[in-house]
Nucleic acid binder design. Structure first.
Lengths: 211, 211
DNA sequence: CGTAAAATCAGACCTAAGACGGAGGCTATT
DNA sequence: AATAGCCTCCGTCTTAGGTCTGATTTTACG
């Protein structure tokens, strides 16, 4: 479409960040910031209004998060490139964002050059992944499908209750099963997660946001 | 000192945020951005170099966090006003920051006007606390000193290890004390936190980000 | 229909965890 | 000098947690 200038839409609830980003991008001849939105819920209409080529997307916003917004936008406009630009790099954010179709994943510690470069690359169809984030991705591919995905639904249910600090007796009562059965589930959970007691399982549950 | 212009130092590891902030402040006649730092470790030297009246301080930075930096700076320059400007508003950040001597606490969702106003107020000695943060403070005063602050340093240490999933034996080994002693500490921790077993204590530790 | 996985329960067994009570040494504050 | 809080440790006792082996029933799938 636009051969020379890339139309960029900024979606971020931090006014300050939008300002900073604009400052970066407005001095670039090849880039034109065509609009802004302050929440994922405004994303779709902003996209329709401004017809951007690239979206700079924050992940954590008041109403609708960036991941959902990305999914929505790409469902209707699959040609748009979404660059995630956020402060966080934990597993529970990165992978859903990429699954939702984000092209690149940058951290807000990125420099102006990094960001400008990422936009040009995204426009060409290339991806830029922050080094810290890339490290996480490597782990993901080297190892496991996040062990707890192997849990059966019942085991998952039990793990959630462990994560809430329930005792076996309480779990049994809550699930209308016997304590012996709960113990069986707990044992299976522990070995599947590769941990050695319920406390570590509870920690696992919290670190993986299963609570 | 400076009757008409307030000298402001920005400390934040997000280049973009620094840009945005500068954009806000540079159009203000009464405010002069005299310098920047990208990490808490640079804070002290930057303060000595630029002699600011007000510091805009991010909390989460690579090496030295904003809370420690605030403490350091105020120890040597108690007349400086520190405005915390961050994305987070959980208990474990807010209160330590205020205890460290921060004057105001703003979120990065704040508008230009909010920030400019906060700087003028801070310079006069007034505080500005974001509404969301203020809500947390009210809770704090209505209720409790976040139970775990009653923990002794040793107990806190033990709680951290519980939060890492260690057994009593492992904790004993790691702290060079007897298992019996660990048990005593654990018992005290449980009753102080108002929980009934180590698993709940571990969950508590994670939810309050003491890990 | 046959098979495999999931869910349920049982008994025997062992151990870590936690409660309770008591106690001595250390340090800081008054 | 004395009080108070913290850290350390001991023994005893009870129970919750966890393993292992094994078994029955239900559910799902080809």
């Amino acid at each position: 479409m636009s051969q020379d200038t890339i139309k960029v839409l900024i979606i971020d609830d931090h006014d300050m960040v939008r300002r900073g980003l604009r400052a970066y991008l407005e001095i670039e001849d090849g880039i034109d910031v065509v609009g802004e939105a302050t929440d994922g819920s405004e994303a779709l209409s902003a996209v329709m209004t401004h017809q951007p080529d690239v979206i700079m997307m924050d992940l954590i916003m008041e109403k609708v998060g960036g991941i959902d917004a990305t999914r929505e936008v790409l469902a209707k406009f699959p040609h748009i490139k979404v660059i995630v630009l956020t402060s966080f790099y934990d597993d529970e954010k990165i992978f859903p964002a990429l699954e939702a179709g984000a092209t690149s994943y940058l951290l807000k510690t990125a420099s102006a050059e990094d960001i400008v470069e990422a936009i040009y690359k995204a426009y060409k169809g290339d991806s830029v992944i922050d080094a810290k984030v890339a490290g996480k991705m490597v782990n993901r591919f080297q190892h496991k499908p996040s062990r707890h995905e192997e849990l059966t639904s019942r085991e998952h249910e039990v793990l959630v209750l462990i994560g809430k600090g329930k005792t076996n007796a309480e779990i049994a009562e809550e699930l209308f099963i016997g304590i012996k059965t709960v113990k069986t589930h707990v044992s299976n959970i522990l070995s599947k997660l590769g941990v050695s007691d319920r406390t570590q399982a509870a920690i696992y549950a919290h670190q993986h946001h299963i609570v």
